[in-house]
Amino acid sequence: MLDDFQFRLHLLTYIQKHDGEWYWYQLDRALSATIGLNGRQLMKELDALRTAGLIKSQEVAGRSYYFITDEGRRVVAVSSKSQ
Score class of each variant (00 low, 15 high):
83 Q>N: 09
63 R>M: 14
7 F>T: 06
31 L>Q: 09
39 G>A: 15
76 V>M: 05
18 H>Y: 15
34 T>K: 13
60 V>M: 08
31 L>H: 11
68 I>L: 05
18 H>K: 08
11 L>W: 01
38 N>D: 12
66 Y>D: 03
1 M>Y: 04
51 T>V: 02
25 Y>S: 14
69 T>D: 02
31 L>M: 14
45 E>I: 02
17 K>R: 13
76 V>I: 15
46 L>G: 10
12 L>S: 07
36 G>D: 13
65 Y>C: 02
72 G>R: 07
55 I>T: 10
9 L>W: 12
70 D>E: 09
18 H>N: 15
65 Y>W: 03
14 Y>G: 01
20 G>S: 04
54 L>F: 02
12 L>Y: 05
38 N>H: 11
40 R>L: 12
35 I>F: 10
51 T>R: 12
35 I>V: 15
2 L>V: 05
27 L>E: 03
79 S>E: 05
75 V>P: 01
60 V>G: 00
44 K>F: 10
41 Q>C: 04
33 A>F: 00
19 D>C: 05
60 V>A: 05
8 R>M: 13
55 I>H: 01
27 L>S: 07
49 L>P: 00
43 M>V: 12
2 L>R: 04
1 M>Q: 07
52 A>E: 12
67 F>Y: 14
7 F>G: 02
18 H>F: 13
46 L>Q: 10
16 Q>G: 09
26 Q>A: 08
25 Y>V: 13
44 K>Y: 14
65 Y>S: 03
22 W>S: 00
77 A>E: 15
80 S>Q: 11
16 Q>Y: 01
11 L>H: 02
20 G>K: 03
16 Q>R: 08
16 Q>T: 06
60 V>D: 12
1 M>H: 04
73 R>K: 11
81 K>E: 15
67 F>N: 07
74 R>H: 07
10 H>A: 14
20 G>N: 11
49 L>Q: 03
59 E>N: 12
65 Y>G: 00
7 F>H: 06
30 A>M: 11
4 D>W: 03
35 I>Q: 11
47 D>W: 10
57 S>T: 11
47 D>C: 02
9 L>S: 06
13 T>D: 12
71 E>G: 09
11 L>R: 06
21 E>R: 10
61 A>G: 01
73 R>H: 03
39 G>C: 11
37 L>R: 03
19 D>F: 03
30 A>N: 04
54 L>Q: 07
26 Q>M: 06
79 S>A: 07
58 Q>P: 00
27 L>A: 08
27 L>W: 09
43 M>H: 13
45 E>V: 05
26 Q>L: 12
52 A>Q: 09
30 A>S: 08
61 A>Y: 11
65 Y>V: 01
2 L>Q: 01
43 M>T: 08
11 L>K: 02
9 L>M: 07
74 R>M: 10
16 Q>M: 04
81 K>L: 15
71 E>H: 07
52 A>R: 13
75 V>D: 06
72 G>L: 04
80 S>T: 07
31 L>V: 02
31 L>E: 09
68 I>K: 01
60 V>I: 15
3 D>R: 06
48 A>T: 08
82 S>T: 14
47 D>P: 01
48 A>E: 13
49 L>C: 02
37 L>C: 05
61 A>C: 05
43 M>Y: 13
48 A>P: 01
5 F>L: 14
47 D>A: 04
12 L>V: 09
58 Q>V: 01
7 F>P: 09
